[in-house]
Nucleic acid binder design. Sequence first.
DNA 1: GTGAAAGCGCTAACAG
DNA 2: CTGTTAGCGCTTTCAC
Lengths: 335, 335
Amino acid sequence: MSGISDVARMAGVSKSTASRALTGGGYVSEATRQRVLEAARHIGYVASTNAASLVTGRTKNVGVIIPFVNRWYFGEVLEGVEDALLACDYDLTLYNVRPGTPSRSRIFEHFLARKRFDGVITIGLDPSPDELDRLLSLDRPVVSLGAQYDGVSSVAIDDVAVSRLATEHLIGLGHTRIVHIGGERSADLTGTVHGRRLRGYLDAMTDAGLGAETLHVPSEMTLPGGYAAGVQVVSNLRSRPTAISAASDEVAVGAIVAARRTGVQVPAELSIVGVDGHEYAEMFSLTTVEQSPREQGVAVVELLMDALGGRQESTTALLHPTRLVVRSTTARPRT
Amino acid sequence: MSGISDVARMAGVSKSTASRALTGGGYVSEATRQRVLEAARHIGYVASTNAASLVTGRTKNVGVIIPFVNRWYFGEVLEGVEDALLACDYDLTLYNVRPGTPSRSRIFEHFLARKRFDGVITIGLDPSPDELDRLLSLDRPVVSLGAQYDGVSSVAIDDVAVSRLATEHLIGLGHTRIVHIGGERSADLTGTVHGRRLRGYLDAMTDAGLGAETLHVPSEMTLPGGYAAGVQVVSNLRSRPTAISAASDEVAVGAIVAARRTGVQVPAELSIVGVDGHEYAEMFSLTTVEQSPREQGVAVVELLMDALGGRQESTTALLHPTRLVVRSTTARPRT
DNA sequence: GTGAAAGCGCTAACAG
DNA sequence: CTGTTAGCGCTTTCAC
């Protein structure tokens, strides 16, 4: 448990000089700096971030608020964020706010208030007005990924465009009976990811003159969710579509599994396209629009670092460059 | 940014009395306590954990070291740990140490040394001797899940028994050509999860007099890993087994997907059994030995809390109660 | 360039 | 039961 005074004594300087040499602030002669560094290394000195925080107000820690850890997209983003944060010498404190759980409110009411971080990153968060209030009243920079609110810089995907692209791909192949799986029944078509993706589908259909053929089957944005919806879609032989536009890759994979269990070949008899660039896409012959969640994580950290580095006013939204790569395994409808 | 002195002033008491009332240490008259609490609530006072840590030495934070976030088992455990930690009023700092990455060494060498936690939880960590050294020299309680080292309390699964059970289930159905997918080629059969699971398979086969029929196809413990191995196993028609014992559910699901793409029905023509209790098991008709990773996460937090609460000597290993529930969808071999 | 002193916000003896 | 007095380990004016 050696402190900075030990280092100072060993190097034959005062605490303040040692501090300057270690943190890089103020003037220190090169010779002295070396001596201090050497001493620190020798006794394995590591500054108590705690004590430093107390005086500087900066914690070298950021809070990450994330609704799910165990969904592919979120897990992937989290790993990207962690990596990028480490590179900047920041620790990451995890706040897992699963919607509707008691821990979610405890986090917003209690844990965030401790302000053990210099800034906050929210991943795909859909905050209630109250939650948003608390977030903003933290008086720390907040950046968000995949959602936009006033006063918060964000990295955003153009969900409408992305989903539209997926749907247009299907239309381009000649499909007309295309159903969309994902989102909630009466979602607003702007405020949520699945809502915007539903919108992209609707837009594409309408533009292609297929507005009347439109069908939306709601589902949770998970693999089991996609499975359940897929079972429903495929089992109804009368209305069975020739293609499915899924709101996410997990949903799409679930739908594929459902189709296969029912004996429907994918993509031969049924074409399915998703959004995200899931690493399992290949295995399931899934056509998908690539998004690289990992890169999104890195991008949002960069944005936060900007905010921490003074640029306080940047509450502008930044559109993440979407790589619109469609893997071409989808089939034309049988005529 | 109101401090404890503001609360004290408002309640008409001294800082120390306010502190006692707030933290619950020492004697305070009920009347005073109420007055202080009221004042604190009124101005929305939240103690600076930082300052408190500086003097008490306790951070109300624990570090979680985990090699993967985006594998089902790990994600699930992480969510369990987070929940349990919140319930104890602890923050969770995430250290994602993917094997072989540069960030891994940076974490062990640099980040852990900051000691911003009261204790550490390692999840399925396979530390090098050097890493283990650093962990132990942290001078903080360390508990582990799924691995055992000297000087560290742990929650452990009986991997050998679990895998043996899975294999015996297959044998009981009448299978004799059973291959095991998982683990590395020359893994030691004690030090790693996949090694022990391989061992359980070998033990079961040997005990059933099938020692000569033994076949191990190595794979990464992931869905794509299981897929690749599954393709290999299924495509070799000559040696094609009638059943597969997989080292984890992800591997098993991968193998199932591989089999289906090759036109092999599962479980009709080929029986596959895994270990973990994956939530997708049902969807893939996977027979699995249930483990509830989430509960394991909770258990390991309990163990850490014990260690934090004084019980310093408890470096004993604790066996996690394994729920050996086999979902019976597996089929007998065709005769 | 370097050192002395003054806290950051809080808790923990120790008297009263 | 409550107030006073010291610091926790570090950074930061401000003289020198």
